[in-house]
Amino acid sequence: MASTPYASAGDEDRTGLWSRRPRFMTWSLLIYAALILWAFISLFPIYWTITTSFKTAVNVTQGHLIPFVDFTPDWKGWRSLGLSPDTISAPSTVRDEFVRRFLNSIVASAGASFLAVIIGSLAAYGLSRFSYKFLWMRNKDISFFFLSQLILPPVVLAMPFLVLYKHLMLLDTLIGLILVYTLMVLPIVIWIMRDQFDTIPLELEQAALVDGCSIWGAFLRIVLPIALPGMVAAFILSVILCWNEYFFAALLTSSNAKTLPVMVASQTGSQGINWWSMAAIATAAIMPLVLVGIFLERYIVKGLTAGAVK
């Protein structure tokens, strides 16, 4: 049988397939190994933070890592926040403070992102649809000017902002924080939204004009809905950036408007670092972002990759 030409041809084919297969498998093995390694590297800090919030001082200093095997989990960190099962119903000043900081963080990031998306979208629409000339600057230069604001380290603005806010009585207010954050994320929002608007053909708006819309009507009824995924993406990105912001929060707030990152950092007391409570606060602080990452990631990707139309 092996001597017939057909069979031998078939055999060759099969060996060809087999010789290809191992190579293919090695490749995917390598790729998966690399991916697993990378996932481990990325996830380890989160794992470490979360487990540390269940450790006592000894476990932290001795570097125990695996709960139930290495060390016995303890609610210590969460208890110090008033968030452990046994303290959750009792009154707790620390918990009240934590909740205040948490709410501050939410209000500051959401408020700033909201403002930035509205203002930024309008600016971006203008940049995408009309030609401006400001001194020697054309649209391209103006866009770059906005983006260039990100190059300057915020430290440069520390003094001016302190002085300005002192006079405006905005120090330690949420409004003040929202305004700085808006300023901080505005360049990114403008950049993203300008890209969005650029992908929407002018003819769509003209069709809307012919169909009976005013210029504002065309913007609100046609352009805005199409650009919505981009706006959502810009909003989420802004929220993440604001949520993590530390510098201005530490600089411009003291008691009233303090946000979570500042509270995390302030866990370094005079008797050393309260690892467990810092870890507990940090865990609570990253949770919202983890949720955002898991549930809203596809909106970000959709919004940023959208060739919005077609």
Binding site: P201, E203, L204, Q206, A207, A208, L209, V210, D211, G212, C213, S214, I222, P225, I226, A308, V309, K310
Partner: peptide, 20 residues
């Protein structure tokens, strides 16, 4: 007169259909 008050209808080369 703005386009909306001229009572004209236009078909564009790219069709310009509202994608949403």
């Amino acid at each position: 007169l703005p386009p909306k008050d001229r009572d004209i209808a236009m078909v564009f080369q790219s069709y310009a259909l509202y994608p949403h």
